[in-house]
């Protein structure tokens, strides 16, 4: 096989793989407990204040602060604590006086993240193939 043929075959496979990922949102049902319009804007709020420079979602992001994937549903933390922390800051985290709209969208976004699954590594099992799965 000539290099150029192999190259195009791989590109073809790559495009199919990519397309299949782009189409996934069509196959998933929306969660009824979440105001998805607000959550979609909340993602932008998260970026606007650059929370990602210190916090992770599913272990991805900056590494100075804790992972926030399941902070909303944590009985010891939850919405009230988030409000307090945003108001006063903590350690390296500055305080954020954000407009109420931004705040509401941000919380809705964090709720949608929380509802998608668990990020705590203790909540996983390891299968024989070496793959991990949520308990």
């Amino acid at each position: 096989m000539k290099p150029i043929h192999l190259f195009f075959s791989l590109c073809f496979l790559f495009l199919i793989y990519t397309l299949s990922i782009y189409l996934t949102p069509l196959t998933v049902a929306k969660m009824s407990t979440i105001d998805s319009e607000k959550a979609v804007s909340g993602r932008i709020v998260w970026q606007k204040y650059n929370c990602q420079s210190c916090h992770q979602l599913y272990g991805l992001g900056g590494y100075l602060g804790p992972d926030l994937t399941n902070v909303v549903s944590n009985p010891k933390k939850g919405e009230r604590m988030i409000k307090q922390i945003l108001k006063y800051g903590v350690k390296q985290m500055p305080c954020y006086n954000m407009p109420n709209d931004d705040y509401k969208c941000l919380i809705e976004f964090l709720k949608s993240v929380d509802a998608s699954g668990l990020a705590d590594p203790r909540k996983y099992t390891i299968s024989k193939t070496g793959m991990i799965n949520q308990k």
Binding site: I21, Y22, R43, S112, S116
Partner: peptide, 20 residues
Amino acid sequence: LWIFSYFREHFVTDMTIQWK
């Protein structure tokens, strides 16, 4: 792609594309 809300609507797919 995240600029389009279609991609942001499903958080998990959005993250998948980001790390792709």
